[in-house]
């Protein structure tokens, strides 16, 4: 009895999606919308298969993901560590907070030209831009994560003899983990956006380049095919983080 509505709710999005594609295809074929701006799903599919066939799409995806992962991992590890330390040791927070407050809101794409001057137009500046993008949200969320741990848990720890590193491993880190994982989600999403953005500005390969090239050569269905791949990766990353969150902080929620 119970799984009928559940099955229905799982099928509903798929049905909506298929319905949407069919309507789109029909609308293009009947000339209701311009194939120039909205190539039909069939045409996009053909572009996709072609781009995969030449290997262009796969190598571009690989390059972008590598850049993104390197910057994300470096930036979020550094950001989380510094955020935790700032939460643990208030003087450090008092000293660094003005800098964080000033730099955090700057869109990292805006300082990309500066980074290219500093680190050259090769991988260095791209790595730095993605790293900085991931760094600040991680710093801010892990700092907030430490701040919201109730004082009572530190007192319990102290009362039972927890000192120094045990306070860090048993209270500080797990207590701020839900907030840190919210930070991972945030960092991942903007770091992915920035990875593709910097590629559009200055790169020889990657999804951003493919996207830009499709525009310059006016191959609109290629453009859509690349966008599709980007969207799918975004979806995949967010599902992975949701899964990771459930696995790492089972005590939160329900």
């Amino acid at each position: 009895m119970n799984d009928r509505p559940r099955k229905a709710s799982r099928l509903a999005p798929a049905a909506t999606f298929i319905g949407f594609l069919v309507t789109w295809e029909v609308a293009v074929r009947l000339g209701w919308i311009s194939a120039l701006f909205f190539p039909s799903p069939g045409a996009i599919w053909i572009s996709l298969v072609k781009l995969i066939g030449t290997g262009a799409l796969i190598s571009a995806t690989g390059v972008t993901l590598m850049r993104f992962a390197a910057g994300l991992i470096a930036g979020s590890v550094l950001g989380a560590l510094l955020g935790l330390m700032m939460g643990w040791w208030p003087p450090l927070n008092a000293f660094l907070d003005p800098f964080v407050a000033a730099i955090y809101p700057i869109p990292k794409i805006a300082i990309f030209p500066l980074l290219m001057i500093m680190f050259g137009i090769g991988e260095g500046s791209k790595f730095a831009a993605i790293l900085l993008t991931a760094f600040f949200p991680m710093l801010v969320t892990s700092l907030a994560g430490v701040r919201q741990i109730s004082r009572i848990y530190f007192e319990v720890g102290k009362n039972y003899g927890a000192r120094g590193t045990t306070v860090f491993t048993h209270i500080l880190l797990p207590g701020s983990l839900p907030s840190i994982l919210a930070g991972v989600r945030l960092s991942t999403n903007i770091a992915f956006v920035i990875a593709i953005s910097v590629e559009m500005i200055s790169a020889r390969n990657g999804l951003g380049v493919l996207l830009f090239l499709s525009w310059q050569t006016f191959r609109v269905s290629d453009l859509y095919a690349v966008l599709l791949v980007i969207a799918l990766w975004g979806l995949l990353l967010n599902y992975a983080i949701a899964y990771l969150t459930r696995a790492l902080v089972p005590w939160v929620g329900e």
């Binding site: 009572i152 009362n159 003899g161 048993h170 005590w251």
Partner: peptide, 17 residues
């Protein structure tokens, strides 16, 4: 040996453990 262990009013259990 611990000198004194406290049972707190609001339990003080670690939610993450």
């Amino acid at each position: 040996q611990l000198r004194a262990a406290m049972v707190f009013q609001h339990f003080g259990l670690f939610p993450w453990m």
